[in-house]
Simulated scan of single mutants.
Amino acid sequence: MANIRLAPVLRSYAGGSKQVSAQGSTLAEVLNNLYQNHPSLKEQIQPEQDLSRFVNVYINDQDVRYLQGLQTAVEANDTITLLPAMAGGR
């Protein structure tokens, strides 16, 4: 199972958990398994077919946008980090 680290702003959608686990051989499969256990995360991470452009997704600290996106291979001991983009300023 892959370990999924959730940014503080996403934890309330996963019962307050800082980290959860999910199964799958690709990022798409892992996320689908994650949504089965925590359905409210889907709207935050993947409201459409593709990933939200406001959420950065990393597998072992590599941005999946520079890999194969949702088709990026995931190994059992990989760490996936979900980080919503933050905006600020004037």
Rank of each mutant, 00 (worst) to 15 (best):
N33S: 13
E29K: 02
F54R: 07
L67C: 04
T26K: 08
Y66D: 01
N37H: 14
Q44H: 11
V20K: 04
D50R: 03
D50W: 01
Q62S: 11
F54D: 00
Y13F: 14
N56E: 02
T26C: 03
S52A: 04
R65W: 11
N56F: 02
E43W: 03
A28S: 14
R65I: 11
P8S: 12
L34S: 09
P39V: 01
N33Q: 07
A22H: 01
G15T: 08
G16A: 05
K18P: 14
Q68L: 13
L67I: 10
L51Y: 00
S12L: 08
S40P: 08
S21P: 06
L41Y: 01
Y35W: 14
Q62N: 10
A28N: 12
N33W: 02
A14E: 06
N32W: 01
P39A: 02
L27Y: 09
N60I: 00
Q23N: 14
V57R: 12
A28K: 13
V55F: 01
V64H: 10
Q62K: 11
A28G: 07
R65H: 13
Y13R: 11
Q36S: 14
I45D: 00
Y35R: 10
Q62V: 14
S17Q: 15
Y13T: 13
E29T: 06
K18G: 12
E29Q: 09
V9Q: 15
K18R: 15
Q62I: 13
G15S: 06
V9E: 15
R11P: 05
V57H: 08
N60Y: 00
I59F: 02
S25G: 14
V30S: 00
L31G: 01
Q23F: 10
L27E: 01
L34Q: 10
S17Y: 09
D50T: 12
L41Q: 07
N60Q: 06
L31Q: 03
V9P: 08
N37T: 15
A14H: 01
G24T: 07
Q68T: 13
Y35D: 04
S52M: 00
E43H: 12
Q49C: 12
V64T: 09
I59K: 06
